[in-house]
Nucleic acid binder design. Structure first.
Length: 677
DNA sequence: TGTAACTCCCCTCCG
DNA sequence: GGGAGTTACA
């Protein structure tokens, strides 16, 4: 059944009882191996529902489960698969009562959590102060990092947010209030899903029950898990019972340090799980030898490298290309040309991807692709869920689901004409949104619907509209989630037309949301699904109706993890972009950026094009002089470039010393002469 | 005087 | 899209 596998892969698949660590290099058949192991476990008698497969995204989980199914096992649908957060959510709805969690909690995403922080920041008087206090996103980031790393607040601030060190007292105060507020409102944030899962797994009352649920636990992308997740894993497989844990990872591909992920989890696995078997997969089945050589050269310069050599198994001799472009426009042009040339050779658009460090790096290219009628789908960057009008609609649903959700109230009330933050706050006080769960939880909403409320004159009409919309959605039996959204849309349409531009496109987004909602049977499930598995691409929203259509893939490098394409185009490989100048604070951060480039390069099977613009007209931070030239990524020094076919821009030669001698600079010098007296 | 509304700027990566 | 700063409104 698994005769295609090499001996190391076979060993991993056939491994019996006890902990197993698979160190799997890029392109070494890791996904296939893990899928085959799942199939093999079932074949050897493990019931599918007793297998827990933890992956980095739901997409990865689906992919692995369906591959296992193709390997001959029919029952894989009952395997527990998903991200740590999604599985935590599921387990807590089932067993949370033991911890005092009612199963009707709602889940806050990162932005929601930050909004709660902002409310508290105001309430505690940190907004109107001469001295500046960390902003809501910073607070949320510090909080999450502290929790996920399991480190003390002061240590985290000292190490990662030294400029906030003077404010630690205030931060602590906000964090205490934040925790309290979440408990009052029956909401959990992403971190809580893990924290409570860990509590469930390690508590004497529930721990053994939980540990008995699963015979085998498999974790993919283990290099990108954090301390909290490692604790959960250990809690689920305590030393007292059978420790059937399989983890797969590659320390060279660890790129989620900002989520407190640590390669320590891989390195220390044998200590936490003694008697662990270790298997290394070092044969690369993906890339041609020149692409692999270039990738290896990049990662070889990392001082913190784990000993491992990837050996090519495929033929091919075309060197990867490094193309210096004059500017962003030429870069976009070069990418479009290269993409179409490959398309002419018979490589579908779908088999090609453009990868970049940050979601906005593809802005220019997207315009150019649209102009040339090259269809594309973009992954990464949570655009849809971040859009204001989508949040507006979801906030309405969340009020209905959880009337104590003050962030949603605050947002929705301010949609009304004449309602600003101050009036919204006053009304929320009148509705007693914030009085905690001491009394009947539904009352702020029923109060809003049934009792007269004091609002600014101009807002009376809006209040009436909102009342009507919320009131009509109250009866969930009569109206499924999609129907509720449709009703809310009649309220939101005029609001959107008044508040935002491009109203028509935004209304269409709401229709997409309804389509998405029609797959959920309940409002609660819809809201949870959306926060735990947000649409990861524009294509997700349009649905997959045009499967016959061909389109180019655009993706952040982070979202490209685990994927591969025939041809990969890496853009903006300039210093300041890769590494991002936001991430050059210390050596660890810089090394993570190096691994990021490594991940990008190793996605390619047959063709690899790396480009960077030599000039940015909208200059990136850190490049003080807008006329100065950007350098190629520091991870591509001369001896690495020997593995590339290096191409210079078509138009202008660039001086080696980087001095600005372009026509533009000459003009500036001329003008400077005129201004001189 | 307190609020709402408007303008300008700069944008990390994700569950 | 949102924060900070400014203007306009009641």
């Amino acid at each position: 059944m698994f005769e295609d596998l090499n001996p190391e892969q076979q060993a991993a698949v056939n491994h019996g009882e006890g902990p197993l660590l698979i160190v799997a290099g890029a392109g070494s058949g890791k996904t296939m191996t893990l899928a085959a192991r799942v199939a093999s476990l079932i074949e050897r008698g493990t019931r599918p529902e007793r297998i827990l497969l933890l992956t980095f995204s739901r997409r990865a989980s689906r992919e692995m489960v369906s591959r296992a199914a193709r390997l001959g096992t029919s029952d894989t649908g009952r395997v527990w698969g998903g991200t740590f957060h999604a599985v935590g959510n599921r387990l807590l709805r089932l067993h949370g009562l033991a911890l005092g969690l009612t199963p009707d909690f709602t889940v806050l995403d990162q932005a929601d959590g930050a909004d709660v922080m902002n409310l508290l920041r105001d309430e505690h008087g940190y907004s109107a102060r001469a001295r500046r206090f960390p902003r809501k996103d910073t607070l949320a980031a510090i909080y999450s990092r502290t929790v996920n790393a399991g480190e003390r607040l002061t240590d985290v601030v000292k190490r990662h947010y030294p400029w906030c060190l003077d404010e630690v007292e205030g931060i602590r105060e906000i964090f205490r209030a934040y925790t309290e507020r979440k408990r009052q409102q029956h909401v959990l944030d992403y971190d809580d899903l893990l924290l409570f899962w860990k509590a469930l797994a390690t508590s004497p009352a529930t721990g053994s029950q939980l540990a008995q649920m699963f015979e085998h636990i498999l974790v993919d992308e283990y290099q990108d898990t954090n301390a909290l997740q490692a604790d959960i894993l250990e809690g689920m497989r305590p030393a007292a019972g059978p420790r059937n844990v399989t983890v797969v990872g590659d320390d060279a591909q660890s790129i989620y340090g900002f989520r407190a992920a640590t390669v320590k989890n891989i390195l220390e696995f044998p200590e936490r799980f003694p008697d662990a078997t270790m298997i290394k997969l070092e044969r690369n089945y993906r890339s041609t030898p020149p692409i692999l050589a270039a990738s290896n050269a990049v990662i070889a310069l990392s001082p913190q490298r784990h000993e491992k050599t990837l050996r090519p198994t495929r033929p091919g001799e075309t060197l990867p290309i490094l193309r210096a472009c004059l500017d962003e426009a030429e870069q976009s042009d070069a990418v479009c040309r290269a993409v179409l040339e490959h398309r002419e050779e018979g490589i579908l658009l779908k088999a090609q991807a453009v990868l970049f460090r940050a979601a906005y790096h593809s802005d220019h290219l997207e315009v150019e692709l649209a102009r040339r009628n090259i269809p594309f789908v973009k992954y990464g960057g949570l655009k849809f869920m971040e859009a204001a009008h989508v949040k507006d609609a979801l906030s309405c649903l969340r009020i209905l689901e959880n009337p104590l959700d003050e962030v949603s109230w605050f947002r929705v009330l301010q949609l009304l004409d004449g309602m600003g933050p101050a009036s919204a706050r006053r009304l929320m006080e009148e509705l007693e949104v914030r009085r905690g769960d001491a009394v009947d939880a539904a009352s702020p909403l029923t109060r809003f619907l049934d009792e007269p409320v004091a609002v600014p004159k101009g807002a009376a009409e809006g209040i009436r509209e909102l009342r009507g919309a919320l009131g009509d959605c109250l009866d969930t039996d009569a109206l499924p989630p999609a129907g509720q959204l449709a009703r809310l849309r009649t309220f939101l349409e005029p609001v959107i037309a008044r508040k935002y531009e491009a109203a028509a496109a935004r209304v269409r987004d709401l229709e997409q949301l309804e389509l998405l909602a029609s797959e959920s049977s309940s409002r609660r499930e819809f809201l949870a699904d959306l926060t735990l598995d947000p649409p990861s691409s524009t294509g997700d929203l349009a649905g997959p109706p045009h499967l016959d259509e061909d389109y180019l893939i655009l993706s952040t490098i982070h979202s490209a993890k685990g994927l591969e394409w025939d041809v990969v185009h890496v853009i903006h490989a300039a210093d300041g972009m890769i590494p991002s100048d936001m991430s050059t604070g210390d050596d660890d951060e810089i090394e993570e950026e190096r691994r990021l480039l490594y991940v990008a390069l190793t996605r390619a099977r047959d063709g690899l094009h790396v480009t960077y613009p030599q000039r940015y007209y909208r200059r990136p931070k850190g490049l003080e002089d807008p006329h100065s030239y950007s350098q190629p990524s520091r991870f591509l020094p001369d001896d690495v470039l020997e593995h590339f076919d290096v191409l210079r821009p078509r138009v202008v030669a660039v001086p080696d010393d980087g001095a600005p001698v372009t026509a533009a600079a000459d003009v500036d010098a001329f003008l400077a002469g005129l201004w001189a007296d």
